[in-house]
């Protein structure tokens, strides 16, 4: 059968030699490739952030929201106890008051606070923490959370950034997605909220441009994102995978969208993650935090827009090792 036949070695070797000869004299434009690649990567990250966060409104208006107890929400876990009282919440300022100055939020502080908001009995293993300069202009907390239900621990991540984008960024998509995939917008007393059940490769209306179509792909990714009225962007998501873009290792993520909502709207963040405590997003020359990734086939952008604006928040990049 022809498929079992071996190609004469001579032709293979000749073609290999021809390819090497044809590329031998090249001086690839390495610096240009690297600059352009980095610029595109930064834009791709900005687009991804813009897809999961919402725009800032202007005025500080905290208040009215009571303490949210995760145990009151839908997990039904017998282990879940009342949420710990928020640490050091000061009296909420009245609308129009001069915003107080807050300490810049660090990933360590975000972790410490997040732990108080998780259901009682859930174990946390830190995968990584990132402060501005390490991962763009966000504070990031990346965890494996084990609810001790006999199934593997899975990812719970939380991201914080200052005012960015426009209010349209947080609007849910409107196409008809597969069962179990949905998105809803809510208005809360202190901001606008987006709750979503999706997949790691999100559902899309079509499969053009390598998108996954209405059913999405990969692990389940459930999320809650809020843009508070003070401009803070807080986003929390949980997957049913143990590693990024890995296999599903349990039926559902360890936190429901209601629990994630309770986390991102917890009053403690109003001070711990006040807008002036959060990093400002990296912007490109046009001042937008999120621009479209150029289509393959466009001109080189090595000289490119959006390349290297440094993070604004914080001083020099810092390094944080996992706490184990």
């Amino acid at each position: 059968m022809s498929t079992e036949r071996h190609e004469p070695h001579g032709t293979e070797a000749t073609l290999a030699d021809a390819m090497h000869a044809a590329t031998a004299g090249f001086q690839p434009p390495t610096a240009e490739l690297v600059r352009g690649g980095l610029a595109r990567g930064r834009r791709m990250r900005a687009v991804r952030r813009a897809q999961v966060t919402v725009a800032a409104l202007a005025v500080v208006a905290i208040g009215g929201a009571g303490t949210v107890a995760l145990s009151d929400l839908g997990s039904g876990s017998a282990k879940a106890g009342p949420a710990a009282p928020p640490p050091s919440v000061s009296a909420p300022p009245s609308a129009g008051a001069t915003p107080q100055q807050h300490q810049p939020l660090t990933a360590e502080k975000a972790l410490e606070t997040l732990k108080t908001l998780l259901p009682a009995g859930y174990d946390v293993k830190v995968q990584s923490l990132s402060n501005p300069g390490q991962n763009g202009s966000q504070v990031g907390v990346y965890l494996l959370v084990d609810p001790h239900d006999g199934k593997p621990a899975t990812m719970v991540n939380m991201l914080f950034s200052g005012p960015m984008g426009s209010s349209d960024d947080n609007k849910c998509w409107t196409f008809h997605a597969a069962e179990g995939i949905w998105c809803t917008n809510e208005t809360t007393p202190n901001g606008s909220l987006r709750l979503e059940q999706n997949r790691e490769w999100p559902a899309s209306e079509t499969t053009e441009d390598d998108k996954r179509g209405p059913a999405g792909g990969g692990a389940k990714q459930w999320s809650a994102g809020i843009i508070r009225k003070d401009g803070a962007n807080i986003y929390a998501y949980a997957t049913n995978g143990a590693v990024e873009k890995g296999a599903e290792v349990r039926t559902n993520p360890v936190l429901t969208t209601d629990q994630l909502k309770a986390i991102v709207t917890a009053p403690v963040w109003d001070t711990v993650a006040a807008a002036d405590a959060l990093p400002k997003p990296v912007t490109n020359k046009s001042g937008s935090a999120g621009t479209q990734t150029p289509a393959w086939g466009s001109k080189s952008d090595a000289a490119g827009s959006g390349a290297a604006a440094p993070p604004v928040h914080g001083a020099a990049p810092t390094t944080v090792k996992p706490a184990g």
Binding site: P29, E32, L33, V34, G36, G37, L38, A39, R40, G41, R42, R43, M44, R45, R48, S128, V243, E244, K245, T293, W296, G297, S298, K299, S300, D301, A302
Partner: peptide, 21 residues
């Protein structure tokens, strides 16, 4: 040449986007 530049920059961009992985 130019398409190759574009393809490599796109590839590097995708790698940067998912650099942790």
């Amino acid at each position: 040449w130019h398409l190759a530049e574009d393809l490599v920059q796109t590839t590097l961009g995708k790698l940067y986007r998912s650099w942790r992985r």
